[in-house]
């Protein structure tokens, strides 16, 4: 049974003329134990997809099954409980509470589970030890380096022992040392049997993943399995074989990296309706960029 099963999921923002299609009938199945990297240009719907999978948001259309259970139309409180018990979320901006110590931050999800204070802090302390932050338990987030803060955030995501970890650009605000620290930690978590989804812009980081999903304008355009330690082939193209941006591309506002990603969906059979939807969507996005 797949952990995540997404079928024809769409997400629309706004009304009438201003409607933006953030996700366009996306299908995605993720099996247990996969380490999935999600790539794509800014605004392609990666974060929206992460928020939907993390139950922070609800799809406008389509079905989402988490661990075989339909969760696309849950009440907010019910979704909160599932988030608490089965999903760990890691953010690009860390999102630790600035006034709480690392230990208290890690213990936060347990607070909402009615676990006693001493037990809470003990569990949090154990997790912090696992991520190598034992000696910084009583530091405030402002007293830690970016990599350390993200490690504490990972500890917070792990504290409820969730099967699924979702990381939305976990290394986006970190330097290379911090990035390596965070990614090594995530791959260790993966080795323990957790399913991990992470969004990244850095092709280098696909080395850690077992599967790479490329998105473009709200759809999944390519989905490839890679071996751990190898940079995914499409990403490699972007890394090493990027042709210099031609004058024509420059005028059109298309970057070399965008061109490197194949624009036709490989897995799914393309539907004419979907294509029709995509075109106006592009124009709205350009309008947005101009603003």
């Amino acid at each position: 049974m797949p952990v995540i099963e997404i079928k024809d999921v769409s997400k629309l923002y706004g009304f009438g003329d201003a409607t933006t299609l953030a996700l366009d009938e996306v299908d995605l199945v993720i099996e247990e134990g996969e380490f999935v990297a999600i790539m794509g240009p800014s605004g392609c719907g990666k974060s929206t997809l992460m928020n939907l999978i993390g139950l922070l948001d609800r799809p406008t259309h389509g079905d989402y099954h988490l661990n075989g259970r339909k969760v696309s139309r849950l009440r907010p409180n019910h979704a909160a409980k599932i988030r608490r018990d089965t999903i760990g979320f890691i953010f690009q901006s860390f999102n630790l509470l600035p006034k709480l110590t690392a230990l208290e931050n890690v213990a936060l999800p347990l607070t909402y589970k009615n676990i006693s204070l001493t037990k809470r802090l003990k569990m949090a302390s154990n997790i912090l030890e696992r991520v190598g932050m034992k000696d910084r338990e009583y530091y405030l987030p402002s007293q830690l380096s970016g990599g350390q803060v993200q490690c504490a955030a990972i500890a917070r995501a792990l504290v409820n022992n969730p099967k699924l970890i979702i990381a939305d650009e976990p290394t986006g605000n970190l330097d290379s040392t911090g990035s390596r620290l965070v990614m090594e930690l995530l791959s260790e978590v993966h080795r323990m049997g957790n399913t991990i989804l992470f969004v990244t812009h850095n092709p280098e980081l696909t080395r850690y993943a077992t599967r790479v999903v490329y998105m473009h304008d709200g759809t999944i355009v390519q989905d490839e399995q890679t071996a751990i330690g190898q940079v995914a082939s499409t990403a490699k193209k972007a890394l090493y074989k990027t042709a210099p941006t031609s004058e024509e591309d420059d005028l059109a506002g298309v970057s070399a990296l965008m061109k490197a990603v194949p624009s036709t969906p490989s897995k799914r059979t393309s539907k004419p309706t979907a294509k029709k939807n995509r075109k106006p969507n592009k124009t709205t996005k350009k309008a947005k960029a101009k603003r």
Binding site: A80, N95, L108, Y112, K113
Partner: peptide, 16 residues
């Protein structure tokens, strides 16, 4: 508000 968002993301219900 941001704090509320974080708390909700880690599983706080409306009532909490």
């Amino acid at each position: 508000m941001h704090e509320v968002g974080i708390r909700k993301a880690v599983g706080a219900t409306n009532r909490q």
